[in-house]
């Protein structure tokens, strides 16, 4: 049986790529389900949806602690939204920018080996992405800019949920480590 030399080993193992795909689906479907149950413009639903997003993202980054995971997750999510739903086309630059900045921050702070750097990266990613998304919303509602202020309030509420999701994600990881599903 032939074994590949270490130099030709791909950067991403298949099981890591599978984990990224599973989490992309998990985050998308759970967000849709929360929105369907609670109604899209309900503040509590917004908090819950964002809380879930960041906590699941934290779990993914602990599960696949490699530089580029966040970026690849974003690319896959937005690509699927673009190909299957036609939407999200204009969110791609915002997502890439936010993803690159967050990856850079994690590397600067000491990499994926430290827990708090992952949390800081996710918080930075969500903040940048939401700010860029607001800019894109302006293109959509430019005829009625007053609507943008209403959107900004909802986005701020959403970000509050995203921040609450960071300790929740940490707690998830603790439980998952205890169960032996996420390794140290």
């Amino acid at each position: 049986m032939h074994t590949r030399p270490a130099s030709s080993e791909p950067y991403w193992m298949v099981r890591e790529l599978v984990a990224i795909g599973v989490f992309a689906a998990l985050i998308k479907v759970s967000s849709i389900l929360v929105a369907l149950i609670g109604g899209g413009m309900n503040p509590l639903t917004l908090v819950l949806k964002n809380l879930l997003f960041t906590s699941l993202l934290v779990v993914l980054l602990y599960k696949v602690p490699k530089p580029g995971t966040l970026l690849l997750f974003n690319v896959v999510s937005i690509l699927m939204s673009m190909l299957l739903m036609g939407g999200g086309f204009f969110l791609l630059p915002a997502m890439l920018l936010a993803g690159l900045a967050a990856e850079g921050l994690i590397v600067l702070l000491g990499g994926y080996s430290r827990g708090w750097t992952v949390l800081a990266g996710v918080a930075c990613y969500d903040l940048l992405f939401k700010a860029c998304s607001l800019g894109i919303s302006w293109i959509f509602v430019r005829e009625q800019p007053e609507l943008l202020w209403i959107s900004a309030v909802f986005v701020a509420i959403g970000y509050l949920g995203a921040l609450l999701g960071l300790p929740a994600g940490s707690r998830f990881v603790k439980e998952l480590r205890h169960a032996g599903i996420v390794h140290e």
Partner: peptide, 30 residues
């Protein structure tokens, strides 16, 4: 129920789903 007990609903629904998803991810990967 979800709106009146958001934390309990998250714990009851999401935690088992995350566990199942992670298990599925490991199995699918292998």
């Amino acid at each position: 129920f979800v709106l009146s007990h958001p934390l309990l609903a998250t714990r009851l629904l999401i935690v088992p789903l995350v566990f199942r998803a992670l298990r599925a991810s490991d199995e699918l990967g292998i």
